[in-house]
Design a protein around this nucleic acid. Structure first.
Length: 700
DNA sequence: GCAAGGTC
């Protein structure tokens, strides 16, 4: 049997070479007879199996390559279709019979053998060097079988997964599945960063090889996350269970993403709790002209020494008259937003759409699956120059709400979007694909769709324009400043209702050199207030900045630490920034009528996201105990801080760039974490003490 | 019962 197989393999290779020669000839004849496409299908025609990372890409690529001449076949997996068509890849494959299909993300998973199933024995530290098996995930069996079966009919395999590290690894998983069906495949990879027709055709003519460095980087990540996550989760859960109470039933999970996420929440919690308010004093000058109250702010802003402010304030009053030292009027603008990334969409949704990041992602995925918006997981904030954005704008002209705005863009108002600095080389920014009536969507979908469209239209329009006026005065020896803006053209603001250009105060006319007696000069007093607890938008921003999780998983990690009861959310109670009130009215003599009558609360709402039903994250006593417990163990690298994850990220990068290897990284990291594990065992008493202190004593 | 990463 095996001999037969080997023979078949050998003869297949011959056919393969022959196919190359004949197909090249075929192309040349074809050039002269362009009408007779795909008529002569000899047995020697190359058969290529193409596999994308997800069904939508398979469909789109098949559409482009086939030019519409395509047959779609169902497979046992309901989400996946096999598309069959002819296509000329150019050299070396030439004209081919193509089957294009896809997987659904990763098809394998890393697992420990069954003998490691129990939590207490073998002890968790054995998981650091237990064998790790790569198996086909139970829910991906049908997907893998489809690849294996189709590979039997093919001479070549072309990988069309996303152009990122995970995509490279998924490509490798596809190769392995395909090789089970056919060990002689010629394997190539297409590199593409969007599914625009010309770009896809170009990718198909410039096939490259799989990058095994990237594959190895991801393989390392997978193995480390498994070993470390399982080991520490079992360690925490079983060891702290002996404390009784709530610990008896809890799962105390550790993960390289969930713990740093918890760490951010706890860190902010302590900064709020340990905050010591400080008293400060300031001076404000007000003058009324042309019916407008002009507030001049102090150039020194505020001082933390009352006596000094009193002296300076007195000097102002003594001077009586203020002198205008500078008047500057200049054009200003408010920039339109950047093209939309996943992280930005989640942040905006938590602030303006009253949703969690998770809900926003669910709605966006649903909109994507129905074909209304583009792929919702992207880090890219610049559109590829080849994209026909005008056509996308045109599709929105039917809307009742923003149709007129879109029409104006079509009629000449269109401007190319700004270009951010991020490009994941896999997906374009999130944008609407087609118009959909709000009545066809559920509440969350409606909100997310509207946001995506308004954001997109804003990107394709013009910055808001205005004129800013700055007036500086000298009052005694102190400088004060007034700033005003007049919005002249709202432009993108018309459609992008989430942005406000506030502070739109028109200043009256002032002339350099003129003198006037201010109507009021006030000495104010206040105290600094603690920072706010984190909102979900803050948390996402922190994770993003520290490389914790990916655009697709951040919301899940946030969800996870709530499920574990490490953190909870509470509605933010309205509060102002630093409390400040007027202590003395002018012209008042010192110690006179300490006029507290005027409500001088400084700028109540700093920006977006304040009050208004925004939720903030507060750690539970359990969450504090875990982070604090690890902190008190005083390791060189605390598990609750983002450093370890960052380090893993750097090591993955080193593998990708050939500066390290999978073996080196795995060895190093496993030893590093084993060390932390041993230390944790030795100092278990410290962790337990923290748990007793916070969970049992502070409860209530 | 446990991770993080894809995708549906």
């Amino acid at each position: 049997m095996s001999i037969l197989k080997a023979r078949r393999v050998a003869s297949n290779t011959h056919i393969h070479t022959l196919a190359l020669i004949t197909s090249r000839l075929y192309i040349q004849t074809c050039r002269f007879k362009s009408t007779s496409k795909s008529t002569s299908k000899s047995a020697s025609t190359m058969k290529v199996l193409c596999v994308a990372e997800k069904p939508s890409i398979a469909k789109a690529v098949a559409g482009h390559l086939s030019g519409g001449q395509v047959q779609a076949h169902n497979t046992p997996e309901k989400f996946i279709k096999n598309y069959v068509f002819d296509y000329d890849f150019g050299r070396p494959w030439g004209n081919c019979q193509v089957t294009m299909t896809s997987v659904l993300g990763h098809i394998t998973s890393a697992v420990f053998p069954p003998q490691y199933k129990k939590w207490d024995y073998p002890p968790p530290e054995h998981l650091f060097d237990a064998p790790v098996q790569i198996i086909t995930s139970e829910d991906k069996k049908k997907v893998a079988e489809n690849i294996e079966k189709q590979a039997r009919f093919a001479n070549a395999l072309c990988i069309w997964t996303d152009c990122d590290r995970e995509g490279e690894h998924i490509g490798f998983e596809i190769c392995e599945a395909a090789k089970k069906g056919n060990r002689t495949l010629d394997i190539k990879r297409a590199r593409f960063s969007n599914i625009e027709r010309a770009h896809i055709l170009n990718a198909s003519r410039n096939l490259i090889s799989l990058d095994h460095k990237q594959v190895n980087a991801v393989a390392s990540r997978i193995e480390l996350d498994l070993r470390i996550g399982y080991a520490f989760t079992r360690f925490l859960t079983t060891n702290l269970r002996t404390l009784g109470g709530p610990f008896e039933k809890l799962i105390l999970s550790y993960g390289s993403c969930q713990f740093p996420t918890l760490g951010f929440v706890v860190d902010r919690y302590f900064r709020v709790r340990n905050f010591k308010p400080e008293q400060f004093w300031s001076i404000k000058v007000m003058h009324k002209r042309e019916g407008i109250n002009v507030n001049f702010g102090w150039a020194r802003n505020r001082l933390f020494d009352r006596a000094s402010v009193v002296v300076l304030y007195e000097r102002c009053l003594t001077a009586k008259k203020a002198k205008v030292t500078k008047v500057q009027e200049k054009p200003t603008k408010k920039l339109k937003p950047l093209p939309l990334t996943t992280v930005e969409m989640q942040k905006m949704a938590t602030i303006f759409l009253r949703m969690t990041g998770q809900q926003a992602m669910e709605a966006a995925e649903s909109l994507y699956n129905k074909g209304f918006i583009s792929y919702p997981r992207t880090e890219t904030d610049r559109f590829d120059s080849g994209m026909n954005l005008r056509a996308l704008v045109q599709k929105q002209t039917t809307s009742q709400s923003w149709g007129d705005f879109a029409q104006n863009l079509v009629n000449g108002g269109f401007q190319q979007p700004r270009e951010g600095r991020h490009d994941d080389k896999a997906h374009p920014p999130i944008h609407p694909i087609t118009y959909v009536a709000p009545s066809a969507l559920n509440e969350n979908e409606k909100k997310v769709y509207e946001f995506v469209v308004r954001r997109f239209l804003a990107c394709c329009s013009e910055d808001a324009k205005g004129v800013s006026t700055d007036v500086d005065i000298l009052y005694g020896e102190e400088s004060f400043h007034a700033h005003g803006v007049v919005v002249l053209e709202r432009n993108y603001l018309e459609v992008y209702i989430y942005d406000k250009w506030t502070g739109t105060v028109q200043l009256p006319k002032f002339v350099v050199g003129e003198q006037f007696e201010p109507e009021e000069a006030l000495m104010t007093e206040g105290k600094t207030s603690p920072p706010n607890y984190l909102t979900e938008a803050d948390l996402i921003a922190l994770m993003d900045a520290n490389g914790i999780g990916t655009d697709a998983t951040m919301a899940e990690h946030i969800q996870k630490i709530q499920e574990r009861d490490y953190v909870r959310t509470v509605p933010r109670t309205a509060r102002s920034d630093d409390d400040e009130e007027v202590v003395e009215n002018a012209p008042a003599t010192r110690g006179g009528r300490g006029g507290r009558g005027r409500g001088g609360r400084g700028g109540a709402t700093r920006s977006t996201g304040r009050g208004g039903g925004v939720k903030e994250f507060i750690p539970t006593q359990l969450g504090v105990a875990l982070i604090e417990g690890f902190d008190r163990m005083n390791f060189e690298t605390s598990l609750g801080k983002p450093f370890l994850r960052k380090e893993m990220e750097l090591k993955m990068k080193a593998i990708c760039e050939g500066r390290s290897t999978k073996e080196i990284v795995l060895n190093e990291s496993i030893e590093q974490y084993r060390h932390v594990y041993v230390q944790s065992q030795q100092k278990l008493a410290v962790l337990k003490a923290a748990c007793r202190e916070y969970v049992f004593q502070n409860s209530g």
